[in-house]
């Protein structure tokens, strides 16, 4: 029993990371229609920024974390300027920026490997090493930190989309671009903000993840796939979907590793199997966007 609860807590924490990555996809996808695989490498760059700030220069987390997140937001914003806006303004089809962003992924990965080399670099634990033991409930500080921050971020995001005018106008762009433009919503600015927000969220995911895994130049692609899988499982309509998708994916992975009679290496295929399964059987995801009738 103890064992199972501990597994559940670490799976929940892992699921939170996937959920954040899915959310980073979602905030870009909703208003722009762009599936942005650069999410994975925004996370990579942020991970190395975290290494620099928190390990090399030993900034306290309270200062280093906001700094890295602002940097990641800036990275998202610049990415949009370079890889998306020029294409959109020439009237290119939506596939063009998607491919350009895939290209950016290679640019980011290779730049990181040139600067930092191929070895993994550590990022310190925000709360230090240690465990919380609370009756049956037990897990590392980091697991609880991840869950707390993720919960806060999802609440904040929900509030933004449901209760603020800016959030409503983001949603309005997602629902009907033409009508949103007619209201006087600045579509360019919404796109720029969406990419900046996506960068910030991906950066946060990286910061929460790397104390456990270290920063490594190849970490981007698996994160991009896991986040995308969580997104597909949860459905591209709502932010709750990203959270549900992340948790389902993580539990599936960890339960497979633990109980399925297959080599641990094969368990890495779980997201791909889930991804293909969902794309075949339920491409609209578990949760539907509000207002869609299916």
């Amino acid at each position: 029993m103890q064992d199972l609860i501990e597994l559940a807590i670490s799976a929940t924490a892992g699921g939170c990371i996937y959920a954040l990555l899915a959310l980073a996809y979602l905030v870009v996808l909703r208003p722009t229609g762009i599936i942005n695989f650069a999410v994975g490498d925004w996370a990579t760059v942020a991970a190395f920024a975290g290494y620099l700030g928190l390990s090399r220069y030993e900034l306290p987390w309270a200062a280093g974390m906001p700094l890295v997140i602002v940097l990641a937001a800036l990275l998202g914003w610049v990415t949009e300027r370079i890889a998306v806006r020029p294409l959109v303004e020439r009237g290119a089809p939506v596939l063009a920026p998607i491919l350009a962003l895939l290209g950016m992924l290679v640019v980011f990965r290779e730049s990181v490997s040139l600067i930092f080399g191929p070895d993994p670099l550590p990022v310190p634990q925000p709360l230090g090493y240690g465990r919380i033991e609370w009756g049956l409930i037990a897990g590392s500080y980091q697991s609880f930190f991840i869950m707390g921050v993720t919960a806060l971020l999802f609440c904040g995001t929900w509030y933004f989309f449901e209760r603020t005018l800016a959030g409503r106008s983001f949603e309005a762009v997602a629902l009907d671009r033409k009508a949103a433009a007619l209201m006087g919503i600045n579509l360019r600015r919404v796109t720029a903000c969406a990419f900046a927000a996506g960068g910030a969220i991906a950066g946060l995911a990286a910061l929460l993840l790397t104390p456990n895994t270290s920063a490594h130049y190849l970490m981007g692609i698996p994160l991009a796939i896991q986040g995308f899988t969580a997104l597909v499982i949860g459905g591209v309509g709502r932010i709750e979907g990203a959270l549900a998708g992340g948790l389902i994916l993580s539990f599936a992975e960890q339960l497979t590793v633990r109980y399925a009679p297959i080599p641990a290496g094969l368990a890495q295929g779980v997201p791909l199997v889930l991804l293909i399964g969902f794309l075949l059987v339920r491409p609209q995801g578990l949760l539907l966007a509000r207002g869609s009738s299916r």
């Binding site: 309005a172 629902l175 009907d176 033409k178 009508a179 949103a180 209201m183 207002g291």
Partner: peptide
């Protein structure tokens, strides 16, 4: 616009509020 183009899941009030953006 032709065809009304409602923000269908939004309330009447939210639609109107967006008009005043």
């Amino acid at each position: 616009p032709e065809g009304r183009h409602m923000f269908a899941p939004f309330s009447v009030e939210d639609n109107l509020r967006l008009g005043a953006i």
